[in-house]
Structures are given as structure tokens and as C-alpha cells.
Nucleic acid binder design. Structure first.
Lengths: 342, 342
DNA sequence: ATGAAAGCGCTAACAC
DNA sequence: GTGTTAGCGCTTTCAT
């Protein structure tokens, strides 16, 4: 346990009268090495406080055992769960995660991508910013054949594997549920964005509205957060005719909206039913509890990581654009359940 | 933009009839190199699609420009903010973050520490698990003089820099506030743990109780989450004499407790005042809005990272154990404000 | 089953 | 201002 000099395989080799190559092999558990030798090497390594030098190894092997992750923000329960899923799979397989936030900025996303590229990550997992134009900054990865997968927020015209829920389908379910509760004046609150999560949820809403032939409008907000939800509520309060059912494309905005409506004396769900999206734990804490759509983040993250590692290690060939659906479902709670009150 | 072979400084050197060292210097902006040469090199590097090989560089320089982070969990708003603060400072200074979760397990914490140590991070930022015994797993870092800082959850007898709020002081403030609201039967809900955050908040509670001479008890729960808070509420409901003021050592548990109390017909704050801790955004979403103590996570994270980088780069000498206080304050909201109702 | 030797790409000491 | 040289610690042929 020397505290200054780093121990190398040469130190071990010298001490044991072996060659560095033998030590290297022994340490990696190469079966060609005699068991007794292997044990001596490992014992000695332990005693000397040896730790393998990742850089030398990486330099030699041209691999980093590191996966880059770019997400818009860390601070949602959903995202933490995604990352926990990735981390678990990564660690199991001897990979590290370098996590970076794009803070919803396309430019920051590009910078992060560049940094990770230069750090020679073995693979990249991305959830895009809302303002995703054509994300050219991922081209270097495909050019150098560094595996890349997207999850949650995926590119419109992608040629990579993606892991998402069926946003359209579930938004459709949520909207049908509102109709089922007797709502006839529907409203969708979302962010103006081409990104799949919001675009698809909007399409789902519109599909359900169309098939039922009732009224359905959309109110756009700037960000999908609490305050924006409150603003939307103010807009709603100013309408000549109030909606009686609202589908909001995430929980934070739904809750902000619901809070403000209630502060204005609106009864939820009696006057207006509300459904959010994501099943954030906070949705069970508000009064009334918010109906929402689950999003199994941990599973999505774990599956994305597993797929990526399979690709990295050549266990899976690149088979072009592929969209994997992570199963999710509508949860009806008080905010849209009129039946239990009857 | 060759897509297969990696360009090295030798390729650039050859093309420009220079030596590798000159190219290396030029690329790093070494002022000794002639400006025109520098420009030629940079231009050529761009054209060839050169990217620096971090490993070769790290191997040579014995530095990684990577900071390890170990936190109990990512999924709190507080922690995301801490990480955002760290990330910002790290990126500004050309460092990457490797973030790992201990999931409140001492063993996982030790594993993570080992992994990061073997990855030769230049420094380490840690928030401990609740079950921190004597964290021996950080010894290798001090032995190899790898700078280490703690934030939020810090060791009892530490010899490293720490960044925390004044938990005791603020818990004391919170408790005094309850007394000020007329509460005379106080209760503290917390987790049984030696870790500073909970121990200090408990001490602060006890200090305020003692100085006022009124009754103050403590109820212990297993985890500081919503469900445990609900359980605590059930215990409270079973008491012969209900408390009239509760200080809970985090917001999640406080909210769980408050929800269940209200479901049992208890009026908040009329019958029982409640104060939480952390100022999680959810504290403004519940009814009534929760009084709490702010915790500027972003600032704490940023300061910890800045300090660490200063240490790494030798701009700051190690000056032994040092506790830096991040300023925070009590926010009184509806859940403990009886005055506005009078 | 083990060893010798070369080289991954970069940087830094030294020379000119 | 630029070049020469050596070496960071590891892995990997190829040889024995």
C-alpha cells in the first residue's frame, strides 16, 4: 500500500520473476496461464496495491468502456429512473456512464456530443432537446461507427434504434377516457415542438377527438413546467366557454394548471377533468390526485443501455432504424374520475 | 473526414513537414509556436478530422480531467440541482463528471468508490449514504492524495472539505417558528441515522424545544419518503394526545404525513402545523402549501466542484477539515401559518 | 505455459 | 521556434 508511486504490472512481474505479459494475462483471468501462477500474481497485486491503468489499456485496445449520455435535464423523477436503469446495466457490464445535460439547448447538446465524441465513448445514449432541428452533431458517431441509441425524445427521421412509449396510442387512450367521463369540450395543453413526445401526444389527442366528432382545441405553452401550466390556466379562465376536459402532455404542467384552476374556484373533476403524462410521484400528492400515463423510465433506460452494449460488443448487428416500444398505461385517479363521485 | 482510420498528430506532422511535438504544441495553443504555424496546424487538423486521443494524453500526463461523483440517489430535485451546479463548473474547466448512485447502500458506495478510484478520477465529490459507518473506502483517495470533498451528507469525523447548510441552526429556526405559531406539543419526524443532515436537524429541534421548555418528541421512520411519512401519520393518529406542531426532516416525508393526517380529518395548520425541509418544488403544489427550509443545491454543487478543481490544479492547498456553509432559510407557507387565518 | 518485443498516441526534457 | 528522443503502462502477436 505505497502511497506515492503507482504500481504497474512490471513491478509485479519483477517481484515474481515473471514477464509483464504473463502478469497481464493472469490479471485478466486468461485461461492459458497456470492456476498457481494466476493466484500468485493476484495475491501480489493485492499486496502491492496495484490498480490497472485504464488509459494504457484503453490506448492499447482502442476502447474506453465508457458510455456517453445526453439528456435534456436530470431533475425529473422520470429521468432519474432512466439513468438508474442505464447505470445498473452499464455497471453490470463493466461500463461507466458520462452523463451530461443539454438544458434543452441545441447548442449545448452539440457541445456535449462533441466532448463525448472526443472522449471516445464506446457508445452514446441520447434524449433530444425540444428544439431539435436536424441534429448534425451526431454524424461523427455514425461516421466512426460508434453505436448510438435514442430514448424518449427521438429524431423525426432517424436511422438509429429508439426506445419510446407509444405516445400517440396512450394520448389517444387518455383522451378517450376524458370523453368517456362525459367531457365534450376538450383541450390539449402542450409545447409547440416537432419532437416526437409532444407531437405524437398531440396527434393522439386529435385522433381521439376526431373519431368522436367532438370539440378539441390545443393551447401551446413555452415550457412544460408548473408555471407555464399556471399560465395556461389563466388563458383558459379567459375563454368564453370553458373546456370540460383537459389533457396535458406532462404532469408538471398539468399540476400547475390544475392548481390555478382550483384557485379560481373551478371544481376538478366535476367541472373540468384533467389528465397528465409521466406518472411523476407528485401526481399522487396533489389534491385531487392526478390521472396520468405511466412511463417506465427505468426499463426504458435499462433496455437502451443493454441494446447499446450489445451493439458495442458486436453481439448485435446494426439493423437500421428500429423503434422499440416500452409498454405504458393510463392511470385514472381523482382528477378525471367523475364516476366515483356519483 | 475519413471515416475509418484515426488521425494522429503524426499524420498532421507528416503532411505539414513538421515534427509531432510542434503539432502537439500548436494544438494546445503553446505560445512558443509561431502563429502562422499554429494556424496551419489547426487548419490541417480540421480538414483531416483529427481528434485528440484522451488516453494517450492522460497516460502521458497522469491526469484524467475526470471528477467522480457518488450520491445516494439522483431522483430528487435537490440532487439534480447539485449535479447541475457541478456539471457547469466542471465543463467550464474542461472536466467530465462520472456520476454514480449508491442507492443508500454502504456496500454500493464502496464499490462505486473503488471503480472511480481505478478509473483514476482526478478528484471525488461525495454525499454519503445514511448508513455510513466509518467510510474506509475513501482511504485510498487520501493515501494517493486524490482530492476529496463531501457535500450535504458528510462524515462525522472528517478530515476533508465539506459543503453543507447549517442544518442545526435552520432546524432550530423551523422549530422556533412552530412555537411562535402557538404550538406547544411538538413532534419531530426523522430517520434514525448518525448522518449529519438528520442528526443535526434533530439537535436543532431539541435545542429549540429545550430553550422554550415545552414538550418535544421524536418519531423515527425507516426512510425519508412519502410512504414512510404516511406511516408516521398513522402512528400519530394513534397517540392519546395529538401533537400540534410537526417538523419533518425532509419534504417528501412531510407531505406524505400531511396527506394522511388530512385524510383523517385533521386540519392543517389549524390543528397541526407542519414544516418540512429542502424546498422541493412539490412543496408548493400540495394543499396546503408546505412550509420548508431552502437548500440551494446548485450553489452547493458548484462550490464543491470549484473547490475540488482548485485543489486538483494546486491552486488551493489542502488545509485540513473545513466546513463551508451554504446559506439557506426558512420559508413559511400555509402548512404552518396560522396568523394569516386569523 | 511463458517471454520478448513492438507499439497504441501523446508530451516533455533537452538540444539546437 | 522547432526537432529528437524517450517513455507513460498496457496488450498482443510471435516465438519458444
Amino acid at each position: 500500500m505505497n502511497s506515492e508511486k503507482e504500481i504497474t504490472i512490471y513491478d509485479i512481474a519483477e517481484k515474481l520473476n515473471l514477464s509483464a505479459s504473463t502478469v497481464s494475462r493472469a490479471l485478466k483471468g486468461n485461461t492459458v496461464i497456470h492456476e498457481s501462477t494466476r493466484q500468485r500474481v493476484c495475491k501480489c497485486a493485492g499486496e502491492l496495491g496495484y490498480r490497472s491503468n485504464t488509459f494504457a489499456s484503453n490506448l492499447r485496445q482502442k476502447r474506453t468502456h465508457t458510455i456517453g449520455v445526453i439528456v435534456p435535464r436530470l431533475n425529473s423523477n422520470f429521468m432519474s429512473k432512466c439513468l438508474a436503469g442505464m447505470e445498473e446495466v452499464a455497471t453490470e457490464n463493466g461500463y461507466n456512464l458520462i452523463i451530461s445535460q443539454s438544458h434543452e439547448s441545441l447548442q449545448k447538446e452539440a457541445e456535449n456530443a462533441k466532448t463525448l465524441f472526443n472522449n471516445r465513448v464506446d457508445g452514446l445514449i441520447v434524449s433530444l432537446t425540444v428544439e431539435s432541428g436536424k441534429p448534425d452533431h451526431f454524424k461523427p458517431f455514425s461516421e466512426k461507427r460508434v453505436p448510438l441509441v435514442f430514448f424518449d425524445r427521438i429524431p423525426a427521421y432517424n436511422s438509429e434504434a429508439c426506445f419510446v412509449t407509444d405516445n400517440m396510442e396512450l394520448a389517444c387512450d387518455a383522451t378517450r377516457h376524458l370523453i368517456d367521463q362525459g367531457c365534450r369540450q376538450l383541450l390539449h395543453i402542450t409545447q409547440k415542438s416537432g419532437i416526437n413526445v409532444y407531437a405524437d401526444r398531440k396527434s393522439g389527442f386529435e385522433k381521439a377527438v376526431k373519431e368522436s366528432g367532438i370539440s378539441g382545441k390545443t393551447v401551446f405553452i413555452e415550457k412544460m413546467d408548473i408555471d407555464a401550466g399556471r399560465q395556461a390556466a389563466n388563458e383558459i379562465m379567459a375563454m368564453k366557454k370553458l373546456p370540460d376536459g383537459i389533457f396535458v402532455s406532462n404532469d408538471a404542467a398539468a399540476i400547475g394548471c390544475m392548481k390555478t384552476l382550483r384557485e379560481n374556484g373551478i371544481k376538478i373533476p366535476e367541472q373540468i377533468c384533467i389528465v397528465g403524462y409521466n406518472n411523476d410521484p407528485v401526481s399522487t400528492l396533489v389534491t385531487p390526485m392526478l390521472s396520468t400515463v405511466t412511463y417506465p423510465g427505468k426499463e426504458a433506460g435499462a433496455r437502451a443501455a443493454r441494446y447499446l452494449i450489445d451493439r458495442i460488443e458486436g453481439r448485435k448487428n446494426f439493423s437500421g432504424e428500429k423503434c422499440f416500444i416500452v409498454k405504458s398505461e393510463l392511470i385514472v385517479r381523482e382528477s378525471s374520475n367523475r364516476k366515483i363521485n356519483q
